[in-house]
Amino acid sequence: MAEHAATLDAGDVGAQEADAGASAELLNETEFQDLYRLHARPLWAYLYRLTGNTADADDLLQEAFCRMLATRLTTREDGQLRAYLFRVATNAATDLWRRGGRTRRREEPLTDESAGAVHDREGAALKLDMARTFRDLQPQERMLLWLAHVEGSEHREIASALGLRAASVPVLLFRARRKLAGLLRKKGYGPGERP
């Protein structure tokens, strides 16, 4: 865990144990439970969309919370903690991809249930198709798009989470959106139509 901490951009949320100021504190169990109740499900959904694998999503979720628990936090503000958690989880996912096939599990085949089944068959098929389309993107593209457009992270935060230069983020985002639009077009969801 310690070696990962060095790659984190602690920003104004987390301070490393070694140089923690007096105001930086570790979370206590109650605070952690509250935080978990609030953010675990959306974080898991993000990780599952990234990895396509429930076991990897579970592992990364645990890893993200463990890393957070090992860090003295300078804030208890929900929005900042959520952004920090997503950043830590993204770092952990990036580490997982860097380790490559040795430890990473294969993406699970998508089913109606894993895609988030809805009651009507047509809706279920559409959701399944959407999940598959998202999986056709590269992992970094998935991370970029999710952080920018679902989590609403700033370019600076995304750059820090993905180890990119902040100036590269808008360009990469533009290309990722373009690629996604291209994939959607191939599947018949052209510009002007709602997926």
Binding site: W146, H149, L180, Y189, G192, R194
Partner: peptide, 9 residues
């Protein structure tokens, strides 16, 4: 094109 991607997300 960009709007399609964002709406999809």
């Amino acid at each position: 094109e960009q709007v399609v991607a964002v709406t999809f997300l």
